[in-house]
C-alpha cells in the first residue's frame, strides 16, 4: 500500500484547523514547521525557526498578511522575506534576511507541504468545497502501522482504504459517503491522521471522529 508521501507532498493539517490569522506548530519527521494563514488565501508552511535568535515562529502572530515573531517582533511577509525589525524602525531589512519556506497546497480540505521543492501535482478537478473536516488524530505508533491498519478490512471504519495516487487514502462507506485519510509522519513513533469527508452530514462526521479516536486507542494498546 502506498504511503502518504507520494510525489514529495506531506499532509500537515486540516484546512479548517489553520484558521485565518492563526499560526500552528507542525512536526514532520522531527522537523519543526510553522503553518499559518493570513486573513485569506492559502496556508503557508515555513521552518519553525526565526533566523534572528531561533525562536519558534509557530508562536508568532499574524499581522497585515505576515507572520511576526513573538521574541523581537521581526515581521516576515508571505514568501519569507523580513520586512520589519522593530528594534530599528527606520531600517529596511536586508533582502538576505528571510525565513526558510516550503511549498504548500490544499487538497480535499487538507493542507500539504513539500519539503523538497516537489512539483505541484496535477490535482483532479475535485470540488474542494464538498470536502468537510472530520478531525486530525495523533497516534503514538509509526505511520506504517496506521497505513496497514487502514488497509485491513476489519478496521474501525468498516471499509478498506485504497491509495489514490496523490498521497491520500480513500475509504468509501456503504451509504455513499467518502472519507479521505492523509497520513503524516511526525516522528519514528508518532503519526498524525487527517480525515475529511464528502457526502457525510454532521452526525456521520461526528461518528467518524469517534471512530478515529477508537482507531487511536486500538493502535496504541498493542
Amino acid at each position: 500500500m502506498e504511503m502518504g508521501l507520494a510525489k514529495g507532498w506531506v499532509p500537515v493539517a486540516l484546512d479548517a484547523q489553520i484558521a485565518p490569522g492563526s499560526s500552528h506548530p507542525v512536526v514532520i519527521n522531527d522537523m519543526g514547521l510553522a503553518v499559518w494563514r493570513g486573513s485569506s488565501g492559502g496556508a503557508q508552511v515555513w521552518e519553525d525557526r526565526c533566523p534572528h535568535r531561533g525562536m519558534r515562529l509557530s508562536f508568532g502572530f499574524v499581522r497585515d498578511e505576515g507572520l511576526v515573531c513573538l521574541y523581537h517582533g521581526w515581521e516576515f511577509s508571505q514568501g519569507g522575506k523580513c520586512r520589519k525589525i522593530p528594534a530599528h524602525p527606520e531600517l529596511d531589512p536586508p533582502k538576505t534576511i528571510c525565513t526558510r519556506t516550503f511549498g504548500s497546497l490544499s487538497y480535499r480540505g487538507i493542507v500539504f507541504a513539500s519539503l523538497d521543492k516537489a512539483a505541484t501535482p496535477d490535482l483532479p478537478a475535485d470540488s474542494q468545497e464538498e470536502w468537510l473536516p472530520v478531525r486530525s488524530v495523533f497516534v503514538a505508533v509509526p505511520m506504517d502501522r496506521v497505513a496497514t491498519y487502514l488497509g485491513a478490512k476489519d478496521n474501525v471504519f468498516g471499509a478498506v482504504a485504497t491509495a489514490d495516487g496523490l498521497g491520500c487514502h480513500r475509504l468509501a462507506l456503504a451509504d455513499g459517503a467518502q472519507i479521505t485519510v492523509a497520513l503524516q509522519p511526525v516522528g519514528a513513533e508518532k503519526a498524525a491522521v487527517h480525515l475529511t469527508s464528502r457526502g457525510a452530514d454532521a452526525d456521520l462526521r461526528r461518528t467518524l471522529a469517534r471512530y478515529a479516536v477508537r482507531m487511536r486507542r486500538i493502535l496504541e494498546i498493542s
Partner: peptide, 11 residues
Amino acid sequence: DDHLAERAIEG
C-alpha cells in the same frame, strides 16, 4: 481535545 473536536463538527 476529543470533546472539542466533536463540538467543532457541530459548529
